[in-house]
C-alpha cells in the first residue's frame, strides 16, 4: 500500500482481508440513521452500480472505491470506514452521476463528522486545524512558500500583514464559541 493511501484511506483493504467472516458483532446497527443525522442522504437507496467509483478523480490515483464505502455504510461496517474518509475532495462528480440521487460526497463529510466525534482524527487533520487557529488558514505559511511567491513575482502572503491579526482573532473566537477546538483536541491555547 502506498504511503498516501495509508494516510488517507486507512486500513480498509487490510481489515477486509483480515476478516474472513463478517458477523453481527462487527456491525454497527443504526449506522445509516447516524449518517443521515450528519447530513448524508439515505445510503440504503444506493443501487451499488459503481458509477461513483468510475467518475471519481481520486480513483485514478489511488485505490479508492466510493461504492465500497457506501456499501460499508449500508451494512453497518462502521469500524472499517471511520479510520477515515479524508481523501474525498468533495468535487461532487459522484453526485452529478448518481442514478439513485444520493450524494456520496456529503456522506463522506458525514463520516468525517462521526469519526471526529468518536475521536478518530488523523494527525494531519489535527495539524491543519491547529494551523487554522494559529495562523488563520489551514496551510501554514512558511519560508518555502514565500520564496516561490517571490520568484513568481507575487506579493507575500496576506497573513504576514499586521492587519490580518484581527482576522485570526475572529477565527479564534468562532473556534472557541463553537467548541471546535475541544472537538478536534487542538493543543494551542485560545485566549478569548
Amino acid at each position: 500500500m502506498k504511503e498516501v493511501e495509508k494516510v488517507f484511506i486507512g486500513g480498509l483493504k487490510e481489515e477486509l482481508m483480515e476478516d474472513k467472516v463478517i458477523d453481527e458483532s462487527q456491525l454497527a446497527p443504526g449506522f445509516a440513521e447516524e449518517i443521515k443525522k450528519y447530513g448524508g442522504k439515505d445510503v440504503m437507496t444506493c443501487l451499488q452500480c459503481g458509477n461513483c467509483t468510475g467518475v471519481c478523480p481520486i480513483s485514478l490515483k489511488i485505490d479508492y472505491k466510493t461504492r465500497n464505502i457506501i456499501k460499508c455504510c449500508q451494512f453497518g461496517l462502521k469500524k472499517y470506514i471511520l479510520s477515515t474518509r479524508w481523501v474525498c475532495a468533495t468535487c461532487y462528480r459522484c453526485y452529478e452521476h448518481c442514478p439513485a440521487d444520493l450524494n456520496p460526497a456529503e456522506i463522506m463529510i458525514a463520516l468525517r463528522h462521526i469519526a471526529v466525534r468518536e475521536g478518530i482524527i488523523p494527525p494531519f487533520v489535527k495539524t491543519a486545524a491547529t494551523n487554522l487557529v494559529k495562523y488563520g488558514q489551514s496551510v501554514r505559511p512558511d519560508e518555502e512558500i514565500d520564496k516561490i511567491r517571490r520568484e513568481l513575482g507575487l506579493k507575500p502572503v496576506h497573513t504576514h500583514d499586521p492587519s490580518f491579526k484581527s482576522v485570526i482573532r475572529e477565527i479564534q473566537v468562532l473556534v472557541h464559541a463553537s467548541k471546535y477546538d475541544k472537538l478536534i483536541g487542538i493543543q494551542e491555547e485560545v485566549k478569548v
Binding site: 451499488q48 452500480c49 459503481g50 458509477n51 467509483t53 468510475g54 467518475v55 472505491k65 461504492r67 452521476h97 442514478p99
Partner: peptide
C-alpha cells in the same frame, strides 16, 4: 457496473468504456 465514461478513438472510432466491475 454502470459505465462512468465513454471515450472515442479519433482514428478507429472504437469506444473505450470506463466502469467499475463492482
Amino acid at each position: 457496473g454502470r459505465p462512468a465514461k465513454l471515450t472515442e478513438d479519433p482514428n478507429t472510432k472504437a469506444i473505450t468504456i470506463r466502469a467499475e466491475e463492482t
